[in-house]
Every structure is written in structure tokens, then in C-alpha cells.
Design a protein around this nucleic acid. Structure first.
Lengths: 198, 198, 198, 198
DNA sequence: TACTAAACGAGACGGTACGTCTTGTCTTAAA
DNA sequence: TTTAAGACAAGACGTACCGTCTCGTTTAGTA
């Protein structure tokens, strides 16, 4: 999403159309799957001209990225109860539940697929979704490490890759449904490897 | 790829065309990226009619799947030196190196992306690539567990998901290049969690 | 249709297939219209390989030409009662009735259409259908002229073109159905112009 | 050709492309023959997308119909000198000369052939070309009949069918070239049959 | 009784065009 | 000046047939 012109002459961006586009995108992607949604179908569903979409987004993928990013709002805050193991478990479960929601998960899979051949979209995906989650997780892990809750020699980024890797692997590469219990087992194994003496 | 008719009347499948198609697919995907390759371009590069592709494969994705599967041949055999930690490290490193090969890795990313919106292709990907690797890994882990090299209460499938998850996460969701050292760090963490008393 | 090899070793032409092909051609053309019939559909309907059709005919048009030529057999003989006016009227009515038969007429229209862009087919059509009819008509007209039944200065070929022209014009270029009464009116006008003093 | 939207929003039809398409159609049909021209070749010759052709015409045949109709403009007006015989002779000669022009005649033969298997195209051909010519001829004949120049009991439609039939018969079903002298002979015969006492 | 040769049903092959779809851009009239 | 509508050039889609080319089998004559 581009920044709206903050001032100057000319008609301002129509917020109603903006929301209608994001809404149509999410609805259509849920209905037909990411690949079967076209910019034209989003435009006609939103009662908007195609040009209005191309004016503010580079592609269908970026529309969906913005819509999905909104949807991740409720798992943005990393819990901090003082118990790192419990907090990681909570957060990973929240993320898993979110992704296991079939409409949302399927839209997100479509977005990730689109990003494989669109480096700019990939960059924005990392920047807006992956990195923030990673940073929050890293911050919490470092705090825990400082408190001795996890081993001081464990590489923080590797822990993050293991935790999220287990979830995304099941999201993208498994015929089995993504379930919290399964993910929990993998997480527990990581806990066993990283537990500190504190 | 369909099974060739074993007998009966009619002209036989042209193996030269078969190989030319797989070759053209790999070359083109490496050159232009999966999304920018069309069935038409594969056909014309292979000196073949489009129908000959559609006769034997359902889509571009399935052609690339067959070509990629051939390419995985040299990491199919799971090492077995008796030392599970060393064997896992070797295998994961081999897989990582394979996927880090930019042409191959990029083709494979395209295939995985295509499979997100084509359940039949996803099924074949799992069946022909993911499952065999998973089965080989499981077999080796169970043997190691029986020998006491890894904890008897560790869930084998979870271990597999963690190991492969860490690799695929970096392949699909990272701007950083996929490197063996990085993957190795994650693997070591898993080892710490699963090491047995043997 | 090509001539069969007159001697030598080798399997002889299969007359059953020959008839099955002509039959399938007529049936299919009647069912779907000339343009919607393919060599493949004739072959599969006749239970015959495509090559067997291409071995004996140059194209779909030539298969249909042979089938149609068979169908014209019953209007081949020109009546000769001594009264040229009555004979012409009889013959033109027979031809009209034949062409007004919807299956036959529609197949024949398809053949004429195909001949517009296939000079070889056009040549064979003229040679096998148009010319024989023309020759028979010419012979009868000349005999009548010699008997003084038609004007001696009337150009015979022009009479033929007028008579057949009126029929074919209605067959090929009219939305109105081809009917004997209508054709008869035109013929009568020609009679008025050519009547002799005998 | 469809009627343009009379108003409302949206880009207007591009008249330059419209003319380029008709021009390319005529040129190509003259060059290669109707059957060897494809919608794709018209599009690429006209520097136009295929969709722009399919947006305004149902088929190649309808493009050519429009182009041919333009070409008939100079024989649209039926002469009226007061002498019906002379006028008919003039008009029939003009039409013959037009159709004998090899490019134009060959394009028109292709159109008539296409119309044999496309009832909608046939309807438009009749409506836009055959009927107007027929109506003009009928009007002139009725005026002549009223003036006693032709027999009052002659069926006007039959006269028209004879005159045009003789021309089209030679256009579509003869190996001999279409020539005015030949057509003239047939017309004279009709004149002999219809001449009135005026 | 073999051998040779042609025709057969089946069906894969390299091509070409089809008519449809979607892309991202451009043009218009209304608000 | 932005909007919705919608035409535009481009080009890939997957399908249908084309006419040719194997296949392995069947049928007739030589030999």
C-alpha cells in the first residue's frame, strides 16, 4: 500500500473504495483461492475501476498482503509472563490457530506462493509480517537468555527458524491439517534442547 | 507422468521427446524462473507439439516435478554410518547444498508455489519427494532410537518436521541465502534436545 | 477414391471399411453439418484408422463427394418423352426434390463450400457431378433444337446455366426453402424465351 | 459489426483499428485465399489484439462480410434510363465485372462458402448484400412492368433468381472464368421470355 | 509351407489455429 | 482530479484437428 497524498490539490483517496477493495480481496480469495482471483474480479466485486487498484497497489499479491497483514493484528503482541517456555508455547499456538483457519491459511499460502516469483512482494512480506514476528520473538528470547531461562550458547535466530519452520513446513508442505497438538510436540523438543539452568 | 502403455496397438511413446521436454523445462525454469516459463515455450524449446506435453502431464508443474525428482536422485540415499548425529548432519547438509544450488532451488521454489493452488500437484509432490525423504529419515531415526542414540520418548515425526522445517523455512521465507552453516546451527539445537544416553 | 492396385502381393482393399467410411461420412454430415465433421470423427464412427481414409481419399471433401455422387444416381438419367418442355420440367423437378431433401442438400452445400477453396475438389465435383448433368441436358436440348422444339439461335449452354443457376441460387443463397413450385416458375420463364416454332 | 455504445463512461471504439482490421482482412484474403486467412493473421497484420476482433465481430466471415459490403458500394445504385432491358444489362454487367475481379470474386466465394455452415453469417449476407440488390432489381422491374415493358404475368422474383442465378452459378460452380459476354447471352434469353408489348 | 508385401486399427507425433482469459495501460464522461 | 466503465495490444491458456509416422496384426499373393 502506498502512502496517501497528505495534502496538495486534487481529490483525496477514497477510503470507502480502499476498504471495499481489501474486503473484496479477502472474500474472493477465501471463496475461490488466491490463483483464481483476478484484479478484475476484485475491482468488479468492490464496485471499483481496475485503475483504482493499480493506482495504489502493484499487484493482486500486494492487495492480499495488506489484507492479511490486518488479519495478523491479533497475534502481533508477544506474551510476556516471565516464563519463556509458556510464552513461546502460547504464541506458537496462537499463530498456529490463526494459520489453521482455513480461509486465512489458504489466502496466506497463496500470498507466499506469489512471493516466490515476485521479489518485491517477498521483500514486503518479510518486512511486514515475517520480520516483525521474528523481532518480537528474538527480543523475548534474549530477555529470557539474560534471565538464564535458556542456554546462553543457543543461537537465537536458529531457535526462531526451528519454531516457525515447524509451523510453516506443515502449512506449506503437508497434506495433514495444521494442528496445535502436532506443532506443540515439535516445540517441546526445541525446549528440551534450549532449556537453560535458570 | 503417466505410465506408458505396456503393449497393445498404436505408436509407442517417443522417449527422445520425453527427455527433451524434461530438459527444456529445467533449462527454461533456471533461465527465466518458474512463473515466466510457459507450456508453449517448453514445447518449442523441446521441438515438440504442445499436445505431446498435455498428453503425458497435467500441467507445467508436473513436468517440472518430474524433472526435479530426477534431480533429487543423488540425495535419495540416507547415509548410515552407525552415528545418527553424523548421518543426519550429512544428509541435511546434502539437501541444503542441493537446494542452495540457485537454479535447482529456484525451480523447486516455483514448484512448491504452484502446488499451493493445485492439490493434485501438491499430492504428487508429497508422494514423490517429501514422503520418500521423510520415510528414509524416519527409518534411520527409529534405528537410532532402538540403539539408544536418541531419546526414546522423542516423537520421530516432530524431529523430521523440525529438521526439514528449518531448511524449507529458509528456502521459502528468507531473504538471506540458504547456507549450510546456518542450517547446521539449527540442527545442532535439535540434536541437543533429542540426544539419548547411548 | 484411388484405383486399387491391380495385382501383386499384399492385402486387398477392405470393401467393408470402404462402405463404412462412406456411410459414416453421410450420417455424420447429416447430423452435424459438413464443417463439424472431421476426418477423425468419420474414422472413429466407421471403426477405421485415420490412415485408411487418407490412403484412399485426399480429404474429407472427397469422401463426401463420393458419397454424394452415389446419391445422385437416381437423377442421372435424363427423361426423353419427345416433349422437351415436359422433360426439362421433370428433370429440374427431380433435381430440386433431391436437393431439397434436407440431409442431402445440406451435405451437398458443404461440399460446394469446400470446393471453393480446394481446386482439385472443385475439378472433381465439376467432372463427376456438374458436367455429366450438363452433358445430358445439352444432348437433350440439341435433339429438341434439331426437332424445332426450341429456337435454333438459342445458346444451349446459356439455357443450362439459367436452369441450373436458378436452382443452385436458391440452394446456396436463399433463406427461403428450395421448393419445386418456385423453381418451376423460373423454368417456365425460360421456356417462354426459348420455345421454338415446332 | 456491433453498434457502438451511444454514450456513458468508458473508452470509445478505436476507428483506426476498425479500418486497419477491414483493410488487413481484404488484403490477406486476396493474397492467400479466404480459407488460409486466420483471425490471428488479420490481428497481427492490423497491429491489433485478437480480442479487439472478437469484441466487434463473431468470426472471420463477418469481418470479410463487412469489408466486401463496402466493396459493393459502386454497384449499389440500379440504373434507370427508362429502358428496362438496357438497365438490366448494364447492372448485370457491372455486377459480373465486379465479381470477375479476381481478388474480390475470390474473397466473395470464400464468404459464401463460410455462410453455408454459419446460418447467422448467411442471414447477414442475405440481409446486407443479396436482399438490397434484389429489392433494387424488383423495384425497377415492377416499374417496367407498369410501363408495359415486360409481360404483366411474369413473376418478378423468378426473373431476379434467373438473372442472378446465372451469374452466381458461373461464379461458384464453373471452371470457366466468369465473363460478361457469357452472362449476357443468358440474360438475353431471359429478355426474350419476359419482353412485354410496350 | 514359408516368405513377402500391402492394408488394417490404433494411436502418438509436430504443428497450427481456435476462442477465451487476464494483464497492465489508455481514454472517456460524470461527479 | 479522481472515479467507474470499458476498449485496447499483448500473449498464454488448454483443446481440437490436421496429415504423418510408427506399431503389431491380418490377409493375400508368390516362392
Amino acid at each position: 500500500m502506498m502512502a496517501p497524498s497528505d495534502s496538495g490539490p486534487g481529490r483525496r483517496r477514497n477510503e470507502h473504495s480502499h476498504r471495499a477493495i481489501l474486503g473484496a480481496a479477502i472474500t474472493l480469495v477465501a471463496d475461490r483461492g488466491f490463483e483464481n482471483v483476478t484484479v478484475e474480479s476484485i475491482a468488479s466485486h468492490a464496485g471499483v475501476g481496475k485503475q483504482t487498484i493499480y493506482r495504489w497497489w502493484r499487484s493482486k499479491g500486494e492487495v492480499v498482503l495488506e489484507a492479511i497483514n490486518d488479519g495478523f493484528a491479533d497475534v502481533a503482541a508477544f506474551p510476556n509472563t516471565g516464563d519463556i517456555i509458556a510464552d513461546l508455547r502460547t504464541q506458537m499456538e496462537n499463530v498456529t490457530v490463526k494459520l489453521a483457519t482455513s480461509d486465512f491459511g489458504s489466502a496466506y499460502r497463496g500470498l507466499i506462493a506469489a512471493a516466490q516469483s515476485d521479489p518485491e512482494l517477498a521483500r514486503k512480506h518479510i518486512e511486514q509480517i515475517i520480520e516483525p514476528a521474528s523481532v518480537a520473538c528474538r527480543k523475548r528470547l534474549i530477555q529470557a537468555r539474560d534471565m538464564g531461562q535458556i542456554r546462553s550458547d543457543a543461537d537465537v535466530q536458529s531457535i526462531i527458524d526451528l519454531l516457525y519452520g515447524a509451523i510453516y513446513y506443515r502449512l506449506l508442505l503437508s497434506t495433514r491439517p495444521l494442528a496445535t497438538e502436532q506443532v506443540a510436540q515439535a516445540i517441546d523438543l526445541v525446549f528440551d534442547g534450549i532449556r537453560g539452568t535458570g
